[in-house]
Design a protein around this nucleic acid. Structure first.
Lengths: 222, 222
DNA sequence: TGTTGTGAAGGCGTTCACAGCC
DNA sequence: GGCTGTGAACGCCTTCACAACA
């Protein structure tokens, strides 16, 4: 069981978790891999394979206990605890992320915000004050921050990443418009909004060039 | 050349485009696949393979002309024109996206914003006024909107997606915390911020359970 | 009978390695 | 000699298909 887990499996686990959350609200007790698959937009074999990386959670002939499976996934994803997050960048994007309530709901608390602009350092944001980036190492240490979010202009992003790593953060979520490099001891995830729109533009363009060609995008459960 | 293009290739094209943009600013005339690879964090073979889906842009022994290749990629990604975008949802996320300047810089113009809340409909946002979602079909038609961005609560997201498709939009960018289903004639991309943080949490957790095991994440050019 | 868990097969994107050309 | 373009090899993730079992 000491196996490498595909990133895609971890992503789907998050999807399953949301579906299970809703099933539990509906007071559904049990769900089959097929039921879970249909609502997650994948195949039932995929569901079973994904779960099998972590254990045997189902009962043959019956399916999975909704509440039980949800608890297992919560443990796997580390959602049974809260995570402290540092946000770097107090501009548009940073302020939007700060007020995005879903983070807190999922267990991620932005406990410090950093910037370098004299206009922003010292500004009060709800229950905290924007600190200068130079204070990053001290605050990471003092507060026990494990995750850093980068929401600064592209040209500053790599330097910020370096400082986050240096400060001892182990996970970095990058919103900057720039490919970043971090040591292998740190995990990096990227969110690039323009890139997603560019992907859409490409697909629309390609489709109109040769209409009605693509195959089903919606995976069916079987 | 009538080949299916991997999504990952299209994403990397966006990365190459950004690198080429910077090279051009530096007045660099020529770049090898290796040079491009190093700055994009992939292998040189990957760069050549990606580009080869679309044509022969390089010169053997020399490399690629920076300005020329950039122009080619701009055409491939459809960045040589402007795209009209409808934003649905005038909450925190929607307002952040609306003020995200990078979109406009890349050629994507949010030309209409929709909501259903009486508090928000009629509100003035810079040079436009939030319309009721019921006006979506008329406005998509009138303005020639091709892309829709969903920034509404999870439970409303699928209905909004259906209405966007119905209105004739061909690309949908979903920020809602929910898996969406659209017909194969529409392209869907998802951005799920919580999911990214959950992925980081999983990786951090996994690493601390068995320290120093992962292999290099930074691909080296060779 | 219904559904899981999983080894085997399949498919697709990445990497290799080299012929071809500047 | 240097570098591209690409068929072939490779590897990883997904899908299949079925034995195991409630």
């Amino acid at each position: 069981m000491e196996l490498r887990i595909p990133t895609s499996t971890v992503r789907r686990l998050s999807d399953y978790y949301r579906v299970l959350e809703e099933l539990e609200l509906d007071a559904t007790k049990t769900v089959s891999s097929q039921g879970l698959a249909r609502q997650s937009g994948v195949t039932s074999a995929q569901v079973r394979k994904d779960l099998s990386y972590f254990g045997n959670f189902g009962k043959r002939g019956l399916g999975y206990n909704v509440a039980g499976l949800r608890r297992e996934i919560r443990l796997i994803l580390g959602l049974n605890r809260r995570w402290k997050v540092a946000l770097v960048g107090g501009g548009n994007m940073g302020s939007a992320l700060y007020s995005y309530k879903e983070f807190r709901r999922q267990g991620f608390d932005i406990v410090a915000v950093f910037d370098v602009s004299p206009n922003r350092v010292g500004q009060r944001w709800k229950d905290l004050v924007i600190a200068h980036l130079d204070r990053l190492p001290a605050e990471v240490d003092r507060l026990g921050i494990e995750i850093g979010v980068i929401a600064v202009p592209a040209r500053a992003a790599q330097a910020v990443a370096d400082r986050l790593v240096e400060a001892g953060v182990h996970g970095v979520l990058n919103f900057a418009h720039r490919k970043l490099f971090v040591p292998t001891t740190t995990t990096l995830r990227n969110v690039n909004l323009s890139l997603e729109l560019e992907g859409l533009a490409f697909a629309i363009k390609a489709r109109s060039a040769r209409p009605a060609r693509r195959v089903a995008r919606r995976a069916r459960a079987r």
